[in-house]
């Protein structure tokens, strides 16, 4: 990370954490919702910083533009008066705050005590961009593949095609030299990325089935939520 990226990271990390704490502390529901907007939006920027453009945009579209509007609607429909607030007891708040800090300490110390990145193994969908790539992109009129542009690969993986693993222009999960010598484990295609596809008849597993299940699930949820929200009106009137 260079200085700009670090600055951006700390700025948006502070916004994320500050918004999350404000959600906990605030008693007014609409202010909580606004703090949540701040948190989720900053998290989307953190996603962008991590080279996950598509997920960041999805976060903005689905969470901030969709779910939060829904929540604010819920707040409005369930308010008994202007700017209602339901207070929790102060003692309970202090107690849960202390427990929360202790919990955070445990989680953070656990997380940081693990060495996640093995420097020999290389990185994941690392968005590799260096200076000079943009002029190349302009010359060929297209962005380079590795510029955080995982859109196509994500789309293909939802069609059960793992371009990132099975094809050569995908990002190999392991360095080339290593996987050439490594034995090809059946069903496990880490080595396939570096090898020509023909020599490895096994293709990696994609996400077609989960994608379809989620689609059907969304439909069921749509119908169910509409049903739940309608029936109560009938019983009331």
């Amino acid at each position: 990370m260079n200085t700009t990226q670090l600055t951006l990271f700390w700025l948006f990390a502070a916004l994320t954490c500050g918004g999350a704490i404000a959600v906990c502390v605030s008693q007014n529901v609409v202010r909580m919702a606004f703090s949540l907007v701040l948190t989720l939006g900053s998290t989307a920027v953190l996603f962008l910083l991590l080279g996950a453009d598509f997920v960041g945009a999805t976060q903005l579209l689905v969470y901030v533009g969709g779910t939060l509007v829904l929540i604010v609607f819920g707040v409005m429909l369930t308010a008994t008066g202007p700017f209602t607030r339901i207070k929790s007891s102060a003692a309970g708040g202090i107690l849960s705050g202390l427990i929360g800090i202790a919990f955070l300490f445990i989680v953070a110390s656990t997380v940081t005590s693990v060495r996640w990145v093995d420097s020999d193994k290389g990185q994941g969908v690392a968005s590799k961009i260096e200076f000079g790539t943009h002029s190349k992109a302009v010359a060929s009129h297209f962005n380079p593949e590795q510029q955080g542009n995982t859109t196509r690969q994500l789309g293909l993986s939802f069609l059960s095609l793992r371009a990132d693993r099975d094809l050569k222009f995908g990002i190999p999960p392991a360095p080339v030299e290593e996987s050439n010598t490594a034995p090809v484990i059946p069903g496990e295609s880490v080595a396939a990325a570096a090898l020509p596809l023909n020599s490895n008849p096994k293709l990696s597993v994609g996400y077609l089935l989960p994608f379809e299940i989620v689609s059907v699930h969304l439909l069921v949820v749509l119908v169910g939520a509409a049903y739940l929200a309608r029936t109560k009106r009938r019983t009331k009137s």
């Binding site: 991590l50 996950a52 994941g124 968005s127 995982t150 994500l154 990132d164």
Partner: peptide
Amino acid sequence: ITFSRCTPLGLDGQV
């Protein structure tokens, strides 16, 4: 997302 970027988890994390 962090693990998808920093470890060999790869695209699966984003999915």
